[in-house]
Amino acid sequence: MNEPFNILFLCAGNSSRSILAEALTTTLSHGRFIAFSAGAKPTGTVHPLAIELIKPTGYPIQLLRSKSWDEFGRESAPAMNFVITLCESALGEHCPYWRGHPATAHWGFPDPAADDSKTRDEMLHSFKQVEKGLHDRIALLMDLPLEKLDRSTIRERLQNIHHRLKYS
């Protein structure tokens, strides 16, 4: 078996979207990917509804934590094959240097935890929508023949995955 691919998911707070992406990618890929998540301005906590949705995947909940993307800009950080931003604010930030010269893409999703005036059921619905969107994109990512593609083609395909699903 080839070495697993490292993928980093970024959003501003690293409490919901990127956390869901980390858990989904790692569990759905069955060892093909090792996913990480981080934020430009981490909240320091993982949203309870994200944890609730991740538990059934079997991903170890104790590994989840809200962390700064600075951890992945260090020389000791794992080299990344892919970096995917999940929110507009992370996309606009000046990112650290990522080891591994990763292919990058943007899969924008609204923050399911942004409106605290929503009821729990409304928020859960928002979280489930983001989870489904991530799941669908990750499933398509898993189907790519990544070992046979160059970085430029991978970047294009990653972006196409999002656009294809966003407008379908």
Rank of each mutant, 00 (worst) to 15 (best):
E3V: 13
I7V: 10
I7D: 04
R17T: 01
I19Y: 02
A23I: 09
A23H: 08
L28H: 07
S37V: 10
A38Q: 08
A40P: 03
K41Q: 11
K41W: 03
T43G: 11
T43L: 15
T43R: 14
H47K: 14
L49P: 11
L49V: 13
L49S: 11
I51E: 09
I51W: 00
I51V: 12
I54Y: 01
R65G: 10
S68Y: 09
D70W: 03
E71W: 00
R74V: 03
S76V: 08
T85W: 08
L86A: 06
C87E: 01
E88T: 13
A90S: 14
W98Q: 07
R99E: 15
H101W: 09
A105W: 00
H106M: 07
G108T: 07
G108Q: 07
D115V: 14
D116V: 14
L124E: 10
F127R: 01
K128Q: 13
Q129N: 10
V130R: 03
V130H: 05
V130F: 02
G133T: 05
H135V: 03
M142T: 04
P145D: 09
I154P: 00
R155F: 01
R155Q: 13
N160L: 13
N160G: 05
H163N: 09
L165P: 04
K166E: 15
Y167I: 12
